[in-house]
Design a protein around this nucleic acid. Sequence first.
DNA 1: CTTTGTATTCAACAGAGTGTTCATTAATAG
DNA 2: CTATTAATGAACACTCTGTTGAATACAAAG
Lengths: 214, 214
Amino acid sequence: MQDNANKPDRRQARTKQLLYEALMDLVREKGAENVTVTDIASRANINRGTFYLHYRDVPDMLQQLKDDVFSRIRAKVEKLDIKEAWAYADRDEAYPQGVIVFDELAKHADFLRTMVGAQGDMSYALRFRELFTAHIYEKVKYVPEGKSIMPPDYFVAYVTSANFGFLMHWIESGMNLTSEEMARIMIRLMHYGPLVSLGLKEVPPGGAKIAEER
Amino acid sequence: MQDNANKPDRRQARTKQLLYEALMDLVREKGAENVTVTDIASRANINRGTFYLHYRDVPDMLQQLKDDVFSRIRAKVEKLDIKEAWAYADRDEAYPQGVIVFDELAKHADFLRTMVGAQGDMSYALRFRELFTAHIYEKVKYVPEGKSIMPPDYFVAYVTSANFGFLMHWIESGMNLTSEEMARIMIRLMHYGPLVSLGLKEVPPGGAKIAEER
DNA sequence: CTTTGTATTCAACAGAGTGTTCATTAATAG
DNA sequence: CTATTAATGAACACTCTGTTGAATACAAAG
């Protein structure tokens, strides 16, 4: 029942592992919404009643797994220091703590691909977008007043979606760039904008800001 | 819904309308996955059996509604002519066919907010992103080789996500810009990139390309 | 090795929702 | 008005749910 942080019984660990594998299989096969407790128990060769000793129902199981992965990733994201990151961006080096974040994402590649992909959960994806927005793109909010033809909230949506789409593509396409490459490209995208990142424009000597604003 | 088809019996139309209203209510209340046929029939004051005269099950009903809205919007999107649009962009006018697209989106505001929002369906959202990508952002694929530090598919993900996030924000925030404003801003974003759109850079006399590349 | 605690199993249960059928009632179009 | 078709109500077998109580299997500690 309750978590004995000290010693998880072998049987519990085994059961949880089997339930997890069965769930992931089934979600990939039929989509998260069509998976039943009976399915999971049967696939895992576990008594149906045993499922209820671990989780309230299927949504609860998914939620616990999502929360677990999310908090692991959040822990790494919260250690990011933007100013430090920009120092690395100027030298075109990968910011170490950034690499750690991408490593953590890669660690949960399978789970994230399933939960954030086409069969995935929109609100879970948005939760990540908000996490990154809160810790990385805060500055974006300070858009200069005046000549802009678009409201600031629209600009925030534009920029955060761009970066998040970039990240999603990495996850969905099989993570075929290393964490170092991702960290380097992403901080560059944020710091200098897409033009410099594409090599179509020189890096300004004094440094630049998001989307080449100033 | 639609009035012009040959001979939709009044009773059928009435029933479909009641089922539709009940479904939308319930999806907003409990999320699409938790709505039962019994729920819908009861909310609509319709015999449960009658539901099955119109739809196979709840997912089927949602699918039909989604397909219907999607094809209406696609019909407008397919009439877009990018070159024509850019002529309007240069004059900073709203491209009429673009306005028509946004009007069509606005027509289905409620439905889209429900289906593409946080409680929404990821694959449906991606379907729209692909539609827009295919008809609007084709050019983005032709990223100049060479100095770029990011693979082209990543750049496509970056740019299309940016524009799609912009659109989603319009839908989710209550569509508080007119179709004309949206059409003007969006074509400008695509044509000149965010800098010019933000008024932080002058429009180049000869015209520019996506994200100020050239 | 034995004891002790507990995780898991098994069978059974009522409840809710499903999808179908059929005879009956009601509304519609012509 | 009449023939047609939609909607109703009731019943059916079915699946999945979430819970219970007694029996069993297994892990950890002495």
